[in-house]
């Protein structure tokens, strides 16, 4: 069988399953970005808060999850989560090991890491909002919540865009490590295809190429979005 057949969409081909795995990689990365967005917003708020313990907790979180190897975080969530689930199972009179669903474990683990990076992105974006614009909002009588919703949040989102692009690219690469939990994303699927056909080189090159496609495409999309935003938005940063 030629290599074209192996990666093609025929009966023996792995093309279909690789494409499906690519979608799985996108899905788990997107889920982790969402998990990280919630965590990141909370941690950023903690880091910016006036309360010293909150700031300390926020700093501890970002230090740990940016300093620990990604693989270690995945082990923490996967094994730790499975242990917790098993313990709950025991309470409900189920004897035996219960695994955490690998998609959930992966999304949470990469989300924990992404949350640490997103926290820094949001904090930076918050600090980039011109203080004077907040003064202006206060001066016409906007309350805290209204100010956040109408003045801060839209600008934080826009300023976060480049940083979020970086986080997305990081998470795409981190998602390969979810393969250790057995989730059939692109890395794991390439590995299985490689092992069962003994065509290691071929399938790792194809897998790598698919990742290149993903990173390149997402780069394009984020650049496009940034340009769209920049067009209407403060393009003369010097003038405040």
């Amino acid at each position: 069988m030629s290599w074209i057949d192996l990666i093609g969409f025929g009966e023996q081909g792995r093309g279909g399953i690789l494409l499906w795995a690519t979608c799985m990689t996108l899905a788990v990365t997107a889920a982790s970005l969402a998990v990280g967005a919630v965590l990141g917003a909370v941690i950023a708020a903690a880091k910016l808060s006036a309360s010293r313990p909150a700031r300390w907790l926020g700093d501890a979180y970002t230090t740990i999850f940016r300093g620990a190897p990604e693989l270690l975080v995945i082990y923490l969530v996967y094994f730790g989560g499975s242990q917790a689930v098993t313990a709950v199972g025991k309470l409900l009179n189920y004897e035996g090991f219960l695994g955490l669903p690998s998609f959930l474990a992966g999304a949470v683990a990469v989300g924990l890491i992404s949350g640490a990076y997103q926290a820094e992105v949001y904090r930076g974006a918050y600090q980039a909002v011109a203080r004077g614009e907040i003064d202006a909002a206060r001066s016409i009588g906007m309350g805290t919540l209204l100010r956040f919703r109408r003045i801060l949040a839209p600008q934080i989102l826009r300023f976060s865009l480049p940083g979020l692009g970086n986080v997305w690219q990081l998470s795409l690469k981190d998602s390969t490590l979810i393969s250790v939990t057995g989730l059939a994303e692109l890395m794991r699927t390439s590995q299985i295809a490689a092992g069962s056909t003994k065509q290691y080189f071929l399938f790792f090159v194809v897998g790598g190429a698919l990742y290149l496609v993903l990173t390149t495409l997402s780069d394009r999309i984020f650049n496009f979005a940034e340009r769209r935003v920049a067009r209407s938005f403060r393009n003369s940063l010097g003038r405040r």
Partner: peptide, 8 residues
């Protein structure tokens, strides 16, 4: 002094 129009 610095206008402080909302830039978005």
């Amino acid at each position: 002094q610095s206008f402080n129009l909302w830039s978005h």
